[in-house]
């Protein structure tokens, strides 16, 4: 082999997310994992991934789609397993980040108690939820992250209940840092991962993760979908420090939320006007703007 080929192979091998992984086309994880790798600037993390698409990403033994050490935990256990890893690493002087990479099922539902407890203990972990608002790995069932009205394989007439406000729940734990991530806003994404890396204690990052299979959307529209979710105000980009200080990163523009929902067949039972979607966005921003005004992360100059 030529030196060039060897160097290229090494790059492919050393990447956090290697070529040949099993992610679907248009999956938000593919962008999220690569940007996270980039944000860490060559520093390699230990990762704990529970049962979710993120562990299928690795592919079958003995190969792995990940270029970093991974512990594949049971569904509800990622923060508990990561607690063990982080404590022992610290006792041994290893300061590399320990990252939980989990889906919404493992975060909003089955892993909620474990996550809450690790946050309460303020374990030195970065917890990233790639939220595709569905049990994607099992064929697209509802989770408590599924928005109201969305069709899933267990809500064929549209989900009757709304989505949990996970950021508020984590802010309620008074953790040092919580932020939302968009795969359409690269600089914002990288900065937040770096902020998380430079902060110690429990850090929570919530990424809205497009899932063409579950969302019934086109893979090549994934990034634009997330952009319209952010710009319409449906998925706000913001940060919460110590659970009490807020910073909004992007104000919505005049992008209608229909841009977002009309490109996903999971939203066929929902229309922007006929439902409470616009009212929900309005209420969400009323709350967020109120918090950011009353409890700003940045003091006015």
């Amino acid at each position: 082999m030529t030196a060039d080929v060897v160097a290229t192979e090494k790059l492919r091998c050393d990447a956090l997310l290697r070529p040949g992984n099993t992610n679907c086309a248009g999956c938000g994880m593919s962008i999220g994992l690569q940007w996270m790798d980039h944000a860490l600037e060559g520093e390699k993390p230990y990762m704990v991934i529970p049962a979710c698409c993120g562990i299928v990403t690795a592919g079958a033994f003995p190969t792995s789609g990940y270029g970093v050490p991974i512990a594949a935990s049971t569904f509800a256990s990622a923060p508990a397993v990561a607690t063990g890893v982080a404590n022992i690493n610290e006792l041994n002087g290893d300061t590399s980040p320990v990252i939980c990479w989990t889906g919404d099922g493992g975060t909003y539902d089955i892993g909620m108690a474990t996550l809450s407890a690790a946050a309460e203990r303020n374990e030195d972990l970065i917890y990233i939820c790639y939220d595709n608002e569905i049990y994607g790995n099992t064929g697209g069932q509802r989770s408590s992250a599924t928005p109201e009205g969305v069709v899933t394989s267990t809500t064929k007439q549209g989900k009757g209940e709304g989505k949990k406000d996970m950021m508020a729940i984590m802010a309620g734990h008074r953790i040092p840092y919580a932020a939302t991530l968009s795969v359409a806003h690269r600089e914002d994404f990288l900065r937040k991962v770096r902020t998380a890396r430079q902060t110690s204690g429990f850090r929570f990052l919530l990424m809205l993760s497009p899932c063409p299979t579950g969302w019934k959307s086109e893979p090549d529209e994934s990034v634009e979908l997330i952009r319209s979710a952010v710009c319409s105000g449906l998925f706000p980009l913001y940060e919460v420090f110590d659970g009490v200080r807020y910073r909004i990163n992007e104000q919505p523009d005049d992008t209608p939320v229909s841009e977002y929902i009309s490109h996903q067949r999971r939203y066929t039972k929902v229309s922007a006007e006929a439902t409470s979607l616009e009212a929900f966005i309005k209420q969400q921003w009323h709350y967020l703007n109120g918090m950011a005004t009353a409890f700003p992360a940045d003091k006015a100059t």
């Binding site: 512990a71 049971t74 397993v81 607690t83 063990g84 890893v85 404590n87 022992i88």
Partner: peptide
Amino acid sequence: GVCIGASVA
């Protein structure tokens, strides 16, 4: 879970 994490470390 913690024991598992500590042990894999």
